[in-house]
Amino acid sequence: MVPAVAAQRVPFTIDADFDLGEAAAPWCRAHGADVVVRRGAVPLSLPRPESRGVAWQHAAGRTLILTPCGARFLVEGGSAMRYALDGGASLADLRLFFLGTALSVLAAQRGLLPLKASAVADAEDVHAFVGLPKRGKSASAAALAARGYPFFADDLLILDPEGLDAEARCYRCDDLKVWPKALELADCEKVGPVRPTSKYRKLYAVPRQRAARVSGRLRTVVYLASFKKGDASGDRHSMHLERLSGSNKVETVIEAAIHSRPITIAVVGRLPLFQWVMALSRRVEMLRLTRPEIPAMFGAGVNRIAALLSAADSGTVQGWASP
C-alpha cells in the first residue's frame, strides 16, 4: 500500500466524477480543485483546427482527443475537461487514457512538461527511464524496485519547468503497468487487467517497493535503446552504457521523452518546448543504455543501472563515466 499522501503538494488539483485510482489520490480534491473533469458532450471535431493528428485536434486553447476505444476528451484552457464514452468504452479505458494522453495535454495546457517516462525514487531524487515504445521502461523501473530503489512513476512524469534553474521538480500520477511476460522479469505482483478485454494484455502490477512521495527532484534520465550504430561485435550479449552530453541530451529528450509529443508541441509551441528541454538537459544527468532485447540481458542491464546509481550516490564520479 502507498502511505498517506493527501497533504503532498501537486502542481494542480483535480475534481473528477470517476475514480482516478490510488496513485492519483494526491491530485484529487472534492471541492475547489484547479481542474474539473466531468462526463458531458464532446464533439467529434473542432472548427478550424490549428493543428491536428489522426486522433487529436487543437484550436484556440482547446484540445480534442479521440481514442480508438471510444473514449473522447475535450481539454479546455487547462482548467476543464469533458469526456464521453462511446462504442462500449469502459471506465477502465477512460482511466487509462485520462492518466496518459489526456492528463499530459492538461499538464501542457497549464505550462508543465509531460514526459513519457517511468521512474524510481532515491531519497529526494528521481531517476527516470525514457525510450521508444517497448524498450522496457516500466519493467526496468519495477525491477529496480527490487534492488533498493522504490518505484516512483509509470508512463507519465510531469515536470515543472518554472524552477528548472534551481531543480527539476517532477510529479507522478499512475500505477505500474507491465506486459505479462515482464511480471517475472521485473519481480512484481499482478493486480489485474488494465482494460477489461482479453484483447489488451497489459496488467496493473505492484512492484516490490513504492515511493510514498508524489514529487521528487529529477536527477537522472536513462535512455533505453536496443541498437548502437558502430556496435559490430555481433555479440548478442554486448551492452553499452554511456553518458550523453550537449546536443545529444536535447535530441534524446525531444525524440523519445515527450509524452504525446505532437499534441504537446501543438499546445506548448516548438520554441518554448525546446527552451524547456534545453533547461532540463542542463539540470539532469543523461545516460544511454543499449542492451539487446532478449530476456537474458534484462537483469544484467538493470544491475548495471543499479550499480551506476549506487556509485553516483556514493560520490564515485567514475560511476558516470563511459565504460
Binding site: G53, V54, A55, T67, L96, T101, P133, R261, P262
Partner: peptide, 24 residues
Amino acid sequence: GRPWFDSLAGISSSDCTEDEAESL
C-alpha cells in the same frame, strides 16, 4: 513501426488493442 504510429496518431499504440491500432 510503433514510433511512426505514435507520432502521427498522437496516442500511444501500447494503450490500444491490436485491433484498435490496426483500424487506425
